[in-house]
Computed example of a mutant assay.
Amino acid sequence: MKLFSHIAAGALLGALLAPAAFAQTAAQSYDPSAPKTRAEVKADLVAWRAAGYDPLDWIDYPVNAQQAGAIVAARRAQSMGAGATPATSQQ
């Protein structure tokens, strides 16, 4: 009987701790406010330049940055399989 109570207590403890383990892995998902590594920043710049953004084009700055940002966001959404398109900016 003592063995059964230890097994039951272990099962109960495991059932209570399992959601905490899954919550911790879910917390490691994408967080846009988290600091980026140097490699991630370089990859972002490559993606923005591939979308047509030129950091030296200061004459068309706000428009070209917004357009490139929308293109990069759409490509990321498509690659993640979300199928959702980002909201376009109102001008």
Rank of each mutant, 00 (worst) to 15 (best):
I7Y: 02
L16T: 02
A21D: 01
K2W: 13
S5L: 10
T85E: 15
P32E: 12
G52F: 03
R38G: 12
R49A: 07
D57C: 07
G81T: 01
D54Q: 06
D54N: 10
L13T: 02
Y61C: 07
A73T: 12
G10K: 01
K2E: 14
L17I: 03
L17K: 00
P19E: 00
P62Q: 08
A18S: 05
A43G: 09
P35Q: 15
L13Q: 00
Q78I: 02
P62V: 10
P86D: 10
A51I: 03
T85Y: 10
A15T: 00
G69Y: 13
G83F: 04
E40N: 04
A21I: 09
V72Q: 00
R75K: 14
T88Y: 07
K42M: 12
Y61M: 14
A50D: 11
D31T: 09
L16S: 01
A18R: 02
Q67E: 13
G83D: 05
F22H: 05
R75H: 05
A18W: 13
I59E: 11
Q28Y: 10
S89Y: 15
S29F: 12
L45I: 13
A65D: 04
N64E: 15
V46P: 02
S89C: 15
L45N: 09
R75I: 04
Q90I: 12
Q24V: 02
P86C: 07
S79E: 12
A11H: 00
K2S: 13
S5E: 06
A20I: 01
V41K: 11
S89I: 15
A9H: 04
D44A: 13
T25S: 04
D31M: 10
L13C: 03
V72A: 01
I71H: 01
H6V: 14
A68D: 06
A51Y: 04
T85V: 12
S79Y: 07
A34L: 06
A47E: 06
K36M: 10
D54T: 04
A20C: 03
G52L: 02
P62I: 05
I59D: 12
T85K: 14
A74T: 06
P55Y: 13
A15Q: 00
D57Q: 12
N64D: 09
N64F: 02
A51E: 02
V46W: 10
L45E: 12
T37C: 05
G69R: 14
K42V: 13
P32K: 10
A87K: 11
K42Y: 06
A51V: 01
A70W: 03
F22T: 05
I71Q: 05
S5I: 13
A39W: 09
R75E: 09
A87V: 10
G10R: 01
S5T: 09
V46D: 15
Y61P: 01
F22C: 01
S29C: 15
H6L: 10
E40C: 08
T88C: 09
S29N: 15
W58V: 13
A9R: 08
I59W: 08
G14H: 00
G83I: 03
G69P: 03
T88N: 11
W58K: 15
N64A: 07
P62C: 03
